[in-house]
Amino acid sequence: MRLRQYDLIAFDWDGTLFDSTAIIVRSIQAAVRDVGGAVPSEAAASYVIGMGLMQALAHAAPDVPPELYPRLGERYRHHYLSHQHDISLFDGVLPMLASLKERHHWLVVATGKSRRGLDEALDAVELRGVFDGSRTADETAGKPSPLMLEQLMREFGVDPGRTLMIGDTTHDLQMAVNAGCDSVGVSYGAHEPAAFASLSPRFVAHSVGELSDWLKAHA
């Protein structure tokens, strides 16, 4: 049997495993509208996916004054939570994760979501026990800070050279660069894959099936 190249595989959540990009974009736009800001374009709202929530909202709505940030965050949560059960894992994600577990990889999540938001998502899609660990932006630092990955690598005693980060945004891939890890990009999420080139991912997958096949052959 081929030896593993990576012991620890870290996944971003939204746009990588969970088909939530469109709802996040619409929730950001609606929240900014609710507080009287200039509604960001779809591209501008997509760009901030992966950042910590308030960092993302501040970037997407630069004309909204800081004193309105708590209200902005509350309105985003309202709109997102009203649709969170309309979204689900991308097709093929569960078999892919099961295959990786069979090969005894440690699987973790490194996400810009809040701890509460991630735990609710994991409960909703019955993924408890699939992932061995996770870190969220509100308990560490938002991407592209390497802190999430650094903490996960320490927790599992894995070196950067044995760690792979998989994500759909430049923030995910830059986090991997900052942590000294390899990365794989996916093109079916929030960011255009042309932006990945300067961050040197080992592969860019255009579907979950392509990602699963690459992991079987190379992870």
Rank of each mutant, 00 (worst) to 15 (best):
R154I: 06
K216R: 14
L122N: 04
E102T: 12
M1K: 07
D7E: 12
Y69N: 14
L72Q: 00
A45Y: 05
R135H: 10
V32K: 03
D91H: 08
L149F: 15
Q151F: 12
D172E: 09
A30V: 06
I166L: 01
S99P: 00
L215N: 08
V130M: 07
E210R: 11
A197Y: 05
K113W: 03
L118G: 07
L53K: 00
L164C: 07
L164S: 10
G167R: 04
G209A: 15
V186F: 00
A194Y: 00
P62T: 03
A10N: 10
Q55N: 14
E74D: 05
I28H: 11
A121G: 07
D63W: 12
C181S: 09
Y47C: 11
S99N: 12
R77M: 11
E67A: 11
I166F: 05
S46D: 08
R135N: 08
L107V: 08
V64F: 01
L118N: 06
A137E: 10
M51Y: 08
A197S: 15
A197F: 13
T16S: 03
E150C: 12
R135E: 15
G161P: 06
M153I: 02
P66Y: 06
F90T: 06
P160N: 08
L68D: 09
D159F: 09
V93F: 00
G37R: 00
G185Y: 08
L8E: 06
D63C: 11
D172L: 09
L127S: 07
A197K: 09
S134I: 01
A30Y: 02
S145R: 09
F131K: 04
P40Y: 04
R77A: 07
A194T: 15
Q5W: 10
Y6M: 00
D138W: 09
Q174F: 04
A190F: 10
V177R: 13
D63N: 15
R128W: 15
M153Y: 15
T163S: 01
D213P: 01
K101F: 06
A176P: 02
G167T: 05
R135Q: 13
D123R: 15
